[in-house]
Design a protein around this nucleic acid. Structure first.
Lengths: 195, 195
DNA sequence: GTCTATACGTTGATAGAC
DNA sequence: GTCTATCAACGTATAGAC
């Protein structure tokens, strides 16, 4: 692990704090103690809490989008879906953290308009990427889907987001795997199902 | 509207406050101002905030369970699913409120064990009721499903919970309707789909 | 039951020394 | 850049008068 600047450490711990407790569930004091500085030092880098939150969600989004782009290198929709789900499952291993954007989406009334916009864009981009996978699967396998790709993608993404919440609530990846299996079914050749 | 005791008013406003801002997003002061009493009066009825939250989620759960039981009077799985979705859509009309349990499920690390237990039971009972609908549909129409009823119910319930979040985030019931259509498809006769 | 008064830690934030 | 000192407002909570 490389040495991080104070600013980087602040951002890193903020990511964890929000994913655990939410924006209204942590304070500058919590963050200051984790990094080993005084709260006034946080204000030097992030004048207001909203600045901190906006920067955190922007950074988080950038990282996840990078992982999303890596999927483009995979040839089939099946490969892409498998890798996508593996990313999620790995993230779910930190048993007490959910998706940062999933957390902010329930706290939307406490967020600034700028932060809200990042949350919405994050949702839409994931839905679009899932829709793209489904469309590709339809082409690859000449198969049908129970709904239009765009609508089905919205359903699957909603289910994945809440499955991460349930993963922590129940301490079990059962629901995440259930959604994953359904997605894998939709991007596979039809009739792969039991005789 | 009938006259409510102070205690009832406190509970009623707490339901709204949690559904809007979350447990960490409202204070005794907010609640006191809404009801028109002093914060010390709240402590008379609910000694600690956790007492208030526990009672709120218990009351909310009881109300929703009552609506769930009403579904048993409907003959077909299709009727039950339609009524179930109508309940959700009506609730989603209060555009700035999500399911109280959906909100608490993301704030789980801030809740007492007793409150967490109510949240988990609420989730499980909904999943079971949806699974029951799906099993009945399989019997009624001798149809197949893309997954076992129990797993499919988990996926659908997760999608519905997050669709309520998205309903507020985007100010559009689009995602809620997408999940609803998929559920209706699963409880209907097969081949109802386009030629 | 409801209030006044009060306690006391926490909160996000600022000014200014070093 | 980081700190000390300080701020006013807010947070839950309690004691006791009425």
């Amino acid at each position: 692990m490389k040495t991080q600047s104070v600013r980087e450490q602040l951002l890193e711990h903020t990511l964890v704090l929000i994913r655990r407790r939410g924006v209204n569930g942590f304070s500058y004091r919590d963050l200051a103690e984790l990094v080993g500085v005084k709260t006034s030092s946080i204000h030097y880098y992030f004048p207001s809490k909203d600045d901190l939150v906006l920067e955190a969600v922007t950074e988080y989004s950038a990282r996840v989008m990078e992982r999303l782009r890596e999927l483009d290198r995979l040839p089939t929709a099946q490969d892409q879906a498998r890798a996508y789900l593996q990313n999620l499952r790995a993230a779910a291993c930190h048993g007490d953290q959910i998706c940062l954007v999933g957390m902010l989406s329930t706290e939307v009334l406490s967020l600034s308009p700028a932060t809200q916009a990042v949350v919405r864009d994050f949702f839409r981009l994931h839905e679009e990427r899932l829709a793209q996978m489904l469309e590709q699967a339809v082409r690859e396998h000449a198969r049908s889907l129970p709904a239009a790709p765009h609508e089905l993608a919205q359903v699957i993404y909603a289910a994945l987001q809440n499955a991460l919440v349930s993963n922590r609530l129940f301490g079990s990846a059962e629901r995440l795997d259930a959604v994953g299996q359904l997605l894998m079914d939709y991007v596979s050749a039809p009739m792969a199902r039991a005789a």
